[in-house]
Design a protein around this nucleic acid. Structure first.
Lengths: 313, 313
DNA sequence: GAAATATAATCATTTATATTCATGTTTTGT
DNA sequence: ACAAAACATGAATATAAATGATTATATTTC
């Protein structure tokens, strides 16, 4: 029996779409189990419900999906086609649902990390490898340039995590220190200051100072050391990368300021020496900040744990 | 807000599948129109309904799909993913639905034609070309061997249409004559019977009769001509194909019986001549039969019209 | 060949779900 | 400050779906 049934003008509901996921699972179950009764069992509904659902679908489409022959059902051409569609699409829906639940559990996602502290990059790189291993379904993305600063990027959902030496305590954000270190002066090992215990700001007025190309306020050597003493270096050179910067220092072209742990690492290969800034040194802290809401996401919370566990002093 | 909501043990309904086609269209509409209100309009539901539906989906999945920022919505990572799924799968569902409706209108399908009449094959072939052109979404399949005969194949849904000279009037079947023709004797043009107006059965008792390899009861030359007169040919050769059969006749190896129109076609190339069987000739009819239910299918009904329009006498 | 069994269809009713309506809250624009 | 626009919420209601009981029919079993 073929009924030409026009499904029209539904006042309620998502308009005229007929085929639904339930219809796919329905056809799959009937085919798999060979009868309405068995299929209904598998779907945890009654035979009656399934019979109704099937009939309704057939009526709405205006096509017979199963030929009823005595008490058995056989797929018609249309049914065969719908089955093939179901076989193809239903697993994809199921898979999508699984993945979304992974998102829900915080097991899948894309962690976009912003860096506001040049030398921290070296530290981060060492962290990322093991982290990616323990979160195989999380991708990490590191960004370093922000139109409205790292905070703006965090607020604007441009990044999900900010690595910075300057936390900003705001209601919506959560900052946590991940490691302490000492900011030191770096000089060539034959430099006149190489053997001293510490340097005073005045000692730098004759030096070429090399830094990353960012505002002076964001450079600790200026904000915490030179500017309080009212001193300026002989000249100021800007260099992008840590490697080149240290090559310059090693070949006696100037001095720079970096974390002590980083200098010690490079000291194995280059002729450079760390020297304390001032009698007491310049202590620093690095923080990671996230949006408070995101602390519920496991892979984000776990990244912070990872970071704290790998302190470098 | 992330809610860890376990959706469990539903007593009713199709178990635990969450994502539905409505959810796909929902996400697509929100994305396309940029706001719940506009999307709801497009879906012909109220803003409230859409808000409820979205919230419910998010609760069930336990994941936020849209970040609400002031009065605007932005996709989260999970939402982005669901959108990509929706973009991929929803059109496929819509397409499947379209095709099923084509089935319903009888515009798409597979027409399996069974042949129980050897020479009809030539006639059918000429029909199929134009038919396929006017029904681009219908495939035609021609079968010639049936374990339980043509009728059995029709009943058993092995074929959808039977071309036969012997209709069987049954409740569930519908037969219709598609063309009338005369069954004639075919002889070499130098044959002693070539110039006669007609032949009597006795005239064949000295001839080699060539036929298709089927039961004698199904051969008109036997059932309608020789057997009623109690005559048998000198010998009986079985040949599968019409072409070879007529080559044999043309080279004087025997005679055969075929539709007049078919003989006239071959007579242009081969030295063969049709001769009337008996004073009145042997009139025949070819029928096509289908299951009565299938008459509602347009491409099937139309095939019969095609056939009748291309009569060959 | 009769009884038992299995399957699907149907009907009336209950239950569940989806949608609306009325309203509240927040944000935006003037 | 105020109106308009956008989303959220709760209660009421409309729609859809599932159930339970029953019927019809075909297969299996004895």
């Amino acid at each position: 029996m073929i009924i030409f049934h026009e499904y029209m003008n539904p006042i309620h509901g998502f308009a005229m779409a007929i085929i639904d996921r339930t219809h796919l699972t329905m056809v799959l179950a009937i085919q798999e189990h060979g009868s309405l009764t068995a299929a209904a069992d598998a779907l945890h509904i009654t035979q009656s419900a399934l019979s109704h659902a099937l009939k309704k679908l057939e009526d709405q489409l205006g096509v017979t999906l199963f030929r009823r022959e005595s008490r058995k059902l056989f797929l018609t051409q249309a049914g065969e086609y719908l089955l093939s569609v179901a076989n193809r699409l239903e697993p994809q829906l199921a898979y999508a649902e699984d993945r979304l639940k992974q998102f829900a559990r915080g097991e899948r996602g894309n962690l976009r990390i912003g860096m506001e502290c040049h030398p921290c990059y070296q530290w981060l790189i060492k962290l990322v490898g093991p982290y990616l291993e323990s979160w195989p379904d999380v991708d990490v993305d590191v960004k370093q340039k922000f139109q409205f600063g790292g905070m703006g990027a965090l607020f604007g959902y441009e990044i999900d995590m900010l690595v910075t030496p300057d936390p900003l305590y705001k209601e919506e954000l959560h900052f946590e220190p991940v490691f302490d270190y000492e900011q030191v002066l770096v000089v060539n090992n034959k430099h006149r200051l190489a053997k001293t215990d510490y340097v005073n700001p005045e000692a730098l007025s004759d030096e070429v100072l090399i830094t990353y190309p960012v505002a002076k306020e964001r450079l600790d050597i200026f904000s915490l050391f030179l500017m309080p003493a009212g001193i300026a270096p002989k000249s100021h050179k800007l260099i992008e990368t840590t490697d080149v910067m240290l090559q310059m220092v090693a070949s006696g072209r100037g001095v720079t300021a970096l974390p002590r742990w980083l200098v010690e690492e490079y000291a194995e290969k280059l002729n450079i020496v760390p020297v304390r800034l001032g009698k007491k040194g310049v202590p620093k802290q690095i923080f990671v900040g996230v949006r408070k809401d995101d602390l519920a996401i496991r892979y984000i919370k776990d990244f912070i744990e990872f970071a704290k566990a790998r302190k470098k002093g």
